[in-house]
Protein backbone atom coordinates (compact mmCIF):
# COMPACT_ATOMS: atom_id res chain seq x y z
CA UNK A 1 0.00 0.00 0.00
CA UNK A 2 2.94 2.24 0.78
CA UNK A 3 4.33 1.52 -2.69
CA UNK A 4 1.01 2.33 -4.34
CA UNK A 5 0.96 5.65 -2.50
CA UNK A 6 4.48 6.26 -3.74
CA UNK A 7 3.34 5.42 -7.29
CA UNK A 8 0.39 7.79 -7.10
CA UNK A 9 2.68 10.53 -5.80
CA UNK A 10 5.09 9.86 -8.67
CA UNK A 11 2.24 10.02 -11.17
CA UNK A 12 0.96 13.32 -9.83
CA UNK A 13 4.43 14.89 -9.58
CA UNK A 14 5.66 13.38 -12.85
CA UNK A 15 2.69 14.28 -15.02
CA UNK A 16 2.44 17.68 -13.37
CA UNK A 17 6.08 18.41 -14.15
CA UNK A 18 5.85 17.08 -17.71
CA UNK A 19 2.74 19.16 -18.40
CA UNK A 20 4.31 22.27 -16.84
CA UNK A 21 7.50 21.81 -18.86
CA UNK A 22 5.65 21.34 -22.11
CA UNK A 23 3.34 24.25 -21.38
CA UNK A 24 6.43 26.40 -20.96
CA UNK A 25 7.81 25.04 -24.22
CA UNK A 26 4.53 25.80 -25.94
CA UNK A 27 4.70 29.41 -24.76
CA UNK A 28 8.32 29.73 -25.88
CA UNK A 29 7.62 28.20 -29.30
CA UNK A 30 4.60 30.50 -29.72
CA UNK A 31 6.75 33.53 -28.89
CA UNK A 32 9.35 32.37 -31.40
CA UNK A 33 6.56 32.10 -33.95
CA UNK A 34 5.60 35.70 -33.25
CA UNK A 35 9.17 36.77 -33.89
CA UNK A 36 8.77 35.24 -37.33
CA UNK A 37 5.63 37.22 -38.05
CA UNK A 38 6.95 40.63 -36.94
CA UNK A 39 9.65 41.06 -39.59
CA UNK A 40 7.30 39.93 -42.31
CA UNK A 41 4.65 42.46 -41.24
CA UNK A 42 7.34 45.16 -41.17
CA UNK A 43 8.35 44.07 -44.63
CA UNK A 44 4.73 44.26 -45.73
CA UNK A 45 4.47 47.75 -44.32
CA UNK A 46 7.60 48.68 -46.22
CA UNK A 47 6.20 47.05 -49.31
CA UNK A 48 2.91 48.92 -48.86
CA UNK A 49 4.87 52.15 -48.70
CA UNK A 50 6.66 51.13 -51.84
CA UNK A 51 3.37 50.20 -53.46
CA UNK A 52 1.99 53.60 -52.58
CA UNK A 53 4.97 55.22 -54.20
CA UNK A 54 4.52 53.00 -57.24
CA UNK A 55 0.86 53.91 -57.46
CA UNK A 56 1.80 57.52 -57.21
CA UNK A 57 4.24 56.95 -60.01
CA UNK A 58 1.56 55.25 -62.09
CA UNK A 59 -0.90 58.03 -61.53
CA UNK A 60 1.65 60.52 -62.76
CA UNK A 61 2.03 62.44 -59.51
CA UNK A 62 5.73 61.89 -59.71
CA UNK A 63 7.59 62.06 -62.98
CA UNK A 64 8.71 58.48 -63.47
CA UNK A 65 11.43 57.76 -65.97
CA UNK A 66 10.48 55.63 -69.00
CA UNK A 67 12.77 52.84 -67.83
CA UNK A 68 10.84 52.36 -64.56
CA UNK A 69 9.71 48.77 -64.05
CA UNK A 70 6.10 48.06 -64.93
CA UNK A 71 3.87 47.42 -61.91
CA UNK A 72 1.39 44.58 -62.43
CA UNK A 73 -0.39 44.02 -59.12
CA UNK A 74 -0.03 44.66 -55.40
CA UNK A 75 2.81 47.02 -56.07
CA UNK A 76 5.01 44.23 -57.39
CA UNK A 77 7.03 44.62 -60.53
CA UNK A 78 7.33 41.94 -63.20
CA UNK A 79 10.76 41.01 -61.92
CA UNK A 80 9.51 40.69 -58.35
CA UNK A 81 6.58 38.53 -59.43
CA UNK A 82 8.93 36.33 -61.44
CA UNK A 83 11.27 36.02 -58.45
CA UNK A 84 8.38 35.16 -56.13
CA UNK A 85 7.09 32.56 -58.60
CA UNK A 86 10.49 30.90 -58.88
CA UNK A 87 10.87 30.92 -55.09
CA UNK A 88 7.42 29.37 -54.58
CA UNK A 89 8.08 26.66 -57.17
CA UNK A 90 11.49 25.92 -55.68
CA UNK A 91 10.05 25.77 -52.18
CA UNK A 92 7.27 23.43 -53.31
CA UNK A 93 9.82 21.21 -55.02
CA UNK A 94 11.98 21.06 -51.88
CA UNK A 95 8.96 20.27 -49.70
CA UNK A 96 7.89 17.57 -52.10
CA UNK A 97 11.34 16.03 -52.11
CA UNK A 98 11.48 16.16 -48.33
CA UNK A 99 8.13 14.46 -48.02
CA UNK A 100 8.72 11.92 -50.73
CA UNK A 101 10.99 9.41 -48.97
CA UNK A 102 8.55 9.08 -46.09
CA UNK A 103 5.51 8.70 -48.27
CA UNK A 104 6.61 6.75 -51.32
CA UNK A 105 9.07 4.14 -52.36
CA UNK A 106 10.23 6.24 -55.28
CA UNK A 107 10.42 9.98 -55.40
CA UNK A 108 7.84 11.60 -57.65
CA UNK A 109 9.50 12.65 -60.85
CA UNK A 110 12.11 9.94 -60.67
CA UNK A 111 12.34 7.75 -63.72
CA UNK A 112 11.33 4.67 -61.80
CA UNK A 113 8.24 6.35 -60.46
CA UNK A 114 7.42 8.07 -63.72
CA UNK A 115 7.26 5.03 -65.90
CA UNK A 116 6.96 1.37 -65.22
CA UNK A 117 7.75 0.82 -68.90
CA UNK A 118 11.12 2.49 -68.41
CA UNK A 119 11.78 0.43 -65.29
CA UNK A 120 10.77 -2.74 -67.09
CA UNK A 121 12.98 -1.90 -70.05
CA UNK A 122 15.92 -1.22 -67.79
CA UNK A 123 15.34 -4.50 -66.00
CA UNK A 124 15.43 -6.32 -69.32
CA UNK A 125 18.61 -4.52 -70.32
CA UNK A 126 20.44 -5.32 -67.10
CA UNK A 127 19.03 -8.84 -66.78
CA UNK A 128 18.57 -10.03 -70.37
CA UNK A 129 18.29 -13.67 -69.27
CA UNK A 130 15.00 -12.95 -67.50
CA UNK A 131 11.74 -12.91 -69.35
CA UNK A 132 9.42 -10.05 -68.64
Amino acid sequence: MKDIGFGLGMTAAGMGTVFAMLLLLMIIVSLMGRMDRQPSSAENAGRDGLAGADLDAMSGIDDAPDTAPRVLADGLTEDQIAAVSVAVLLHAEIRRQQAAPAMRTHQPGSHIFASRWVANGRGLQTQPWRRS
Binding site: M10, G14, M15, G33
Partner: peptide
Protein backbone atom coordinates in the same frame (compact mmCIF):
# COMPACT_ATOMS: atom_id res chain seq x y z
CA UNK B 1 5.07 20.81 -37.90
CA UNK B 2 5.46 21.43 -34.17
CA UNK B 3 6.80 24.95 -34.72
CA UNK B 4 3.91 25.67 -37.07
CA UNK B 5 1.36 24.59 -34.49
CA UNK B 6 2.75 24.96 -30.94
CA UNK B 7 -0.55 23.95 -29.29
CA UNK B 8 0.22 20.35 -30.25
CA UNK B 9 2.98 20.30 -27.62
CA UNK B 10 0.43 19.51 -24.90
CA UNK B 11 -0.64 16.34 -26.70
CA UNK B 12 2.89 15.08 -26.24
CA UNK B 13 2.51 15.46 -22.48
CA UNK B 14 -0.77 13.51 -22.40
CA UNK B 15 0.90 10.66 -24.28
CA UNK B 16 3.24 10.02 -21.35
CA UNK B 17 0.54 9.11 -18.80
CA UNK B 18 1.06 5.40 -19.52
CA UNK B 19 4.57 5.61 -18.05
CA UNK B 20 3.32 6.55 -14.61
CA UNK B 21 0.21 4.35 -14.57
CA UNK B 22 2.34 1.36 -15.54
CA UNK B 23 4.77 2.26 -12.78
CA UNK B 24 1.89 1.87 -10.30
CA UNK B 25 0.93 -1.50 -11.82
CA UNK B 26 4.53 -2.71 -11.63
CA UNK B 27 4.72 -1.69 -7.97
CA UNK B 28 1.48 -3.59 -7.34
Amino acid sequence: PLLENPRMVLLGAAGQLGIFLTLILALA
